[in-house]
Design a protein around this nucleic acid. Sequence first.
DNA 1: AAAAGTAGCAACCGCCAGGTG
DNA 2: GCACCTGGCGGTTGCTACTTT
Length: 242
Amino acid sequence: MGRQPCCDKVGLKRGPWTIEEDHKLMNFILNNGIHCWRTVPKLAGLLRCGKSCRLRWINYLRPDLKRGAFTESEEDQIIQLHSRLGNRWSKIASHFPGRTDNEIKNHWNTKIKKKLKLLGLDPVTHKPVEKTDGNSWNKPDDDDGEATIDVSPRKGDEKLEEIQMNLEETNDLFSNYQMLCESFDLDSWLNQGANTSCSSSYSIEESNKSSMGETNSTVQEESLKQWVDSVDSFLSWDSFIH
DNA sequence: AAAAGTAGCAACCGCCAGGTG
DNA sequence: GCACCTGGCGGTTGCTACTTT
């Protein structure tokens, strides 16, 4: 007998997630925690397979995610870890709280690989690439036809400044977000549902009280609201009615 | 301005390991 | 020990936005 698929794919939706689906999944997990991914879509009213829900949560909706570009030091650390661990992205990701393995893998494939090639290093072995002729040192893309990184000044410098300003604004948002995550016991929060019913009456407030105690619950509540607001601003959920 | 090419990234697929009955 | 289920992982695909011609 062959292996059964992870879920019955007939009639299930695929492709990009809609805002409404994101909200349904978030609401469900916020209210009930995570116990069994297979049952999540059914209980949350989603036409997705559990695996897809899990991926969406882990890679995009999780409150402790650190969004934004990788810093130089993060890149260096990824390179070092990759030289030790190879393509074990989840292991590498475990060194970067708030980063996902998928994010790191994508960053590696799209940016760091090219950076290493540009430096004349083999992205797999991390050793200098063998010279094939006298000119190949500074032309790492000759072998596979991949484009080089354009480091020369470009006409779009003004646009770059604009992006940097936006990034700063985003970083402010992230720092709020990080403050929340640092003080917020996500594991307890996600697991609390074991002791609660699946009713939607279970609130974030109650979750805070049970996982952190009464004393700083107001602060936590405020932080969590900030986080929800932050996610809202990322996703433009204005049109969705809770 | 339009077509072609490229980069970035979200999402999917298939496989594997661990847990359970 | 076996069959099955679920979660997790790494590789790959496909869509979209951006850039170049």
